[in-house]
């Protein structure tokens, strides 16, 4: 097996990563780049905890091979906060009481960020639809949806 070099943009900075082809984007981000906010919950594209913003869209990074990310623009939760301070979406999650165990939260926030980038003033229906690929076992989702609405109201 020959190693490959993946060139892409991660959190607004160009990176090149030398990596075995049998690694997922999830592994590359967590292990090679140390971006451990990206969580592995199900390994089958089901829970959404490993969601990253990939060329502007939320995707599950457990379903992408590292090599496929060549040329991609990737944002993880580490790329959302500024100097360790929460951005408007993160702040809204904190204030709304949307965070319990927090394992789903990186994926939730990134999914919300991707929605608000494209549609800064979504309806509640659009919020629900956008957030429908992220499982949470703690909150019953209400406070999470309220947090996205609160963030949108401050956009």
């Amino acid at each position: 097996m020959n190693k490959i070099t993946v060139h892409c943009t991660v959190n607004h900075k160009p990176v090149s990563v030398e990596i075995e082809p049998n690694k997922r984007l999830l592994d590359m981000l967590r292990v090679n780049l140390g971006l451990t906010s990206v969580k592995e919950g199900c390994s089958e594209g089901e829970c959404g905890a490993c969601t990253v913003i990939y060329n502007g869209e939320p995707v599950t990074s457990c379903c992408i091979l590292a090599g496929q990310a060549e040329g991609a623009d990737i944002i993880t939760l580490e790329g959302v906060s500024v100097d360790g301070k929460p951005d408007v979406v993160q702040q809204a999650f904190i204030e709304s009481g949307a965070i319990q165990c927090g394992f789903c939260i990186p994926g939730m926030i990134l999914t919300a960020e991707a929605l608000l980038m494209k549609n800064p003033h979504p309806t509640m229906e659009q919020i629900k639809e956008a957030m429908s690929g992220n499982l949470c076992r703690c909150t019953g989702y209400k406070k999470i949806e309220e947090a996205v609405a609160l963030a949108a109201s401050r956009m």
């Binding site: 949470c136 076992r137 703690c138 909150t139 019953g140 989702y141």
Partner: peptide
């Protein structure tokens, strides 16, 4: 939050 999550 507990009540909402518990209901789910």
């Amino acid at each position: 939050g507990q009540i909402e999550g518990g209901t789910a």
